[in-house]
Simulated scan of single mutants.
Amino acid sequence: MNPQSEKCLKQAESVNKRKELVKKDLRKKWMTEGEELVRWRESLGLSRALIARETGVDQGRIKRLEEGEPVRDARLLMQVYKLLLEKVEMKRALKSIVESVELRY
């Protein structure tokens, strides 16, 4: 193999190594975010089935998102998921406020 070919081969290997590192970093990020969603969902006492039904997304896809697996439109799905959890929190907080006001009268 000539020196030019060796240089090209080394560069290709270097690029592949960087791609693998980026993939690992992204996987860790998605796993961490998925774990946070699961903790949040469970703290609200919600099931994965309810999340799937309310978002209109297949339950298996929700599970893969929570586990940090590749999911089509993951960023969008993550935002919809978070908005749903926020909605539940807000409804519960509002209900609590209304109930406390009713108790005073």
Rank of each mutant, 00 (worst) to 15 (best):
L46N: 14
K82H: 07
G45S: 10
L50Q: 15
D73L: 04
M31K: 03
M78V: 03
M90A: 07
R61F: 07
Q59E: 15
L76T: 07
I51Y: 04
R53S: 15
L46V: 15
G45N: 12
K63E: 12
E54G: 03
Y81D: 06
G56Q: 02
E36W: 00
M31L: 02
L85M: 09
R61D: 06
V71L: 01
I62C: 08
L44V: 13
M31Q: 05
E54M: 11
P70H: 05
M31V: 01
R72P: 02
E69T: 00
Q59S: 12
K91L: 11
V80N: 05
L46F: 14
E54D: 09
T55P: 05
G60Q: 14
L83N: 12
V88T: 08
K82R: 14
E67L: 13
G45H: 09
L76E: 09
G68R: 00
V38M: 10
D73M: 04
E35F: 01
T55N: 06
L85F: 05
E42I: 11
L65A: 03
P70E: 11
G56C: 02
V38G: 06
V57H: 08
K82N: 07
D58F: 06
A74Q: 03
L84C: 01
I51H: 05
K87D: 13
K91V: 09
G45W: 09
R61I: 13
E67Y: 07
V57A: 08
A52Q: 11
E33N: 01
L84A: 02
K91I: 09
R53P: 03
S47D: 11
L83R: 10
S43L: 13
G60S: 15
L37C: 13
G45V: 09
E69S: 04
L46A: 14
L50Y: 14
V57F: 05
R61E: 11
L50H: 13
G68L: 01
R48Q: 15
V80S: 05
G45C: 10
E67R: 13
S43D: 15
L46I: 15
R53I: 07
G68I: 01
R48N: 13
K87Y: 13
M31D: 00
G56R: 01
I62S: 08
G34C: 02
E89H: 03
V57C: 08
E42H: 15
E86S: 07
E86L: 06
G56V: 03
T32P: 00
E54H: 05
R64H: 14
I62P: 07
K82C: 05
G34N: 02
E89R: 10
R53E: 15
